[in-house]
Write a protein that binds this DNA or RNA. Sequence first.
DNA 1: GGGGCAGCTCGTACGGTGTACGGTATCCGT
DNA 2: ACGGATACCGTACACCGTACGAGCTGCCCC
Lengths: 224, 224
Amino acid sequence: MASASTSDPKLALTRERILAEAVAFADEHGVDALTMRKLADRLGAGAMSLYTYVKNKDDMIEGMVDLVTAEIELPAEGEWRGAMRDSARSAHHVLLAHPWAAHEWTSRMPGPARLAYMESILRSLAEAGLDEGLVYRGYHAVTMHIVGFTIQELGYQNFPSGQDLGAVARAFLDDLAVADLPHLALHVEAHLSDEDHGDEFGFVLDLILDGLDRANGDQGGRRG
Amino acid sequence: MASASTSDPKLALTRERILAEAVAFADEHGVDALTMRKLADRLGAGAMSLYTYVKNKDDMIEGMVDLVTAEIELPAEGEWRGAMRDSARSAHHVLLAHPWAAHEWTSRMPGPARLAYMESILRSLAEAGLDEGLVYRGYHAVTMHIVGFTIQELGYQNFPSGQDLGAVARAFLDDLAVADLPHLALHVEAHLSDEDHGDEFGFVLDLILDGLDRANGDQGGRRG
DNA sequence: GGGGCAGCTCGTACGGTGTACGGTATCCGT
DNA sequence: ACGGATACCGTACACCGTACGAGCTGCCCC
């Protein structure tokens, strides 16, 4: 019956528990608000106790990113386009569910889960029969799209904090010399009345996958 | 003969001088090492004096990002594919020259220079005759690619700090169970012997631009 | 000329951070 | 029973962003 969520004093400290609680905290309050003292409080421990399981704060955040990465569904075997799409979409969802993670992802060394993730993408592309150079480029294109797009997307919803985009964008437009920025004004209006612009993430992803497919037909696939 | 670079006591404090010096400092030591005290020292001023010209540190970094953005060459009028490519390449160069900037770009409100930049991309796409929905999606695809790709690229060279990628990647591979990650091992080897993989940035950019072109032919361009 | 005021400069101080260090408590192998 | 490892954590330190208010100018209006 006892919930383990906040400060059950009987629960032993472990690296896993620390990382899980840190992820939960970052999800709730943002990674900037995460401090060793506050996290320790939440775990019912002293701040310095965490350092038994964690080298330092950077190491901890690295571990958090890896924990999040482990949630991503890896590309299945078989038809590569669909598998890649599904996995990319899963990564997109996971990174949106932990809005701080994409940003950290880009500036830290990969842990074991992320290495496994990288491996799986590369394998999927290689087993699709892509030319070696195309695997190299395709890997960059796809992963770049996944985290780049998500970061960009999160940027839009993080502008102030919490309130809806509409009010912000409105104020934004009113403040600036809209007359000088007509296309931007239109674009923001489009954002306001979104919903029916559909699946942007998938749109660009398909541009990339189509391009890889086509490039492969031109130079590699046809040759074999 | 007197250089104005570091602490000429006669130079008046201005927002422009502060931002320029802050950018220079961040270029040299990274944005994490940038503190108000150290920056003030460099300017031959007291830390609190900066606050006359800058609301707070966040405001300052916003200004720094905007200053950097102003270096980007906007897309020229005329043939849109070439113009977009040139501008994207310019943005890519600028963001590589200020390695901290791409990361900040994604988490801060745009200032005047960035608004102008956004406007110019949107205008270029619109004047290319793209369908309204394609302008919306194309804008996101292109800008996402520029900063996403650059961030990813910088991630690779920021792993430790300063030393060359080769040694790091080697150590990296040796540590990990390479046998379990064969495709990743291959990929890292490819990174080690780079130089001839060519223009990755342009490769993906072309995938996107080609895709937009094609999508426009299918639904918009043909109709008009 | 003089008095006031506005704006720039910045010393000091406060509440916060990450974490080094050393002390204590608890357990385990002998 | 006891010695040593291990987990825990209180205290302290250096450093951070920045609120506050005191000093110093230089200008305007009487």
